[in-house]
Computed example of a mutant assay.
Amino acid sequence: MKFSREGFLEDCLAARRRDGMPAVRELLKEAVREPAAILAELGDPTEAKLDVFHNSSELTIFAAHWTPRMNLLPHDHQMEALIGIYTGREDNILWRRTEGGIEAVKARCLFAGDVVGLGADAIHSVTNPLPRFTGGIHIYDGDFFATERHQWDPETLEEEPSDGATISKIFAEENRRYRAANG
C-alpha cells in the first residue's frame, strides 16, 4: 500500500463529512498498519515538530515528531483526538480532573501501528521513552491551533493556559536538548 499525504487528507475530510470521526479513525488505523509506507512519504523524523497536513474549523491533521526521551506535560485538547503511531513509541498517562486539580488514572503505551482515540475532555501527558525519534499522525475534530487549551505544571500540577506559542517553546527546547546531547 502506498501512503499519500494529500490522498490521506482528502479521504479523512470526506469520511469526516460523511460518517464523522469513527470513519476517520478507520482510515488512520488502515494507514498506520503500513508504517513503512508513511515513512516513505514523510521521511524519518529528525526533529521535534508538528508537520501540519491540514488545519480548519472542521479538522486538523499533522504528523507529530518527538525527539528521543521527549516529554510533554499533562495537557488537554478540548476536542476529540485520534493518534496513530507510525514509528517509535508514545507512552501516555491519562489524567482526570479532581476537586484539587488532576490525578493520574491510567497509562497506555502506543507502538507503531497502534491507534488511540481521546475524548474531548481527555487530559494526557506524553513521553517518548526511546533513544530514537517517534512519529505519529494526530487528527483533531476541529481547529486545534485556534482552540484555547490547558496544561498542567509537571511538578505542582497547577493548571495553566496553553497555546501554540507555549507548545512551540517546548518543541524548541527539546530540539536544543537533543542537539546538545548529540552534537
Rank of each mutant, 00 (worst) to 15 (best):
D141I: 12
P161L: 06
E26C: 10
D153T: 13
A23I: 13
L27Q: 04
D11C: 10
A180D: 15
L13P: 00
G142V: 08
E41S: 14
I85V: 15
E159V: 13
R96S: 04
S56H: 06
R5E: 08
M21L: 15
K106R: 15
A64L: 05
E174C: 02
D91N: 12
E30I: 03
P154L: 14
A36M: 11
E158P: 01
E26L: 14
A14R: 13
E47T: 13
V32W: 03
D91Y: 07
D11A: 15
R96C: 04
A181M: 14
P45I: 12
S168Y: 07
F111M: 11
F62T: 02
H150T: 10
F133P: 11
Y86I: 03
I83L: 12
L50C: 07
V116P: 01
E10C: 09
I83G: 08
G20F: 11
Y86T: 07
I123T: 00
H65R: 05
V116K: 02
E173Q: 08
D153K: 08
L39T: 12
A40L: 09
R177A: 11
L50W: 11
M79A: 09
H77D: 10
F53P: 06
V126C: 09
C12H: 07
L157M: 13
A172M: 06
T98C: 01
D44L: 15
D141R: 12
T98Q: 00
E34P: 02
L50I: 01
A107N: 10
D153G: 05
T87K: 14
K49F: 07
T166K: 12
E10I: 07
R17W: 00
D121W: 01
T156V: 01
M21D: 03
L59M: 06
R132V: 15
H77K: 03
T147R: 11
G183A: 09
F133D: 08
A146Y: 02
M70W: 00
P161Q: 06
R25N: 09
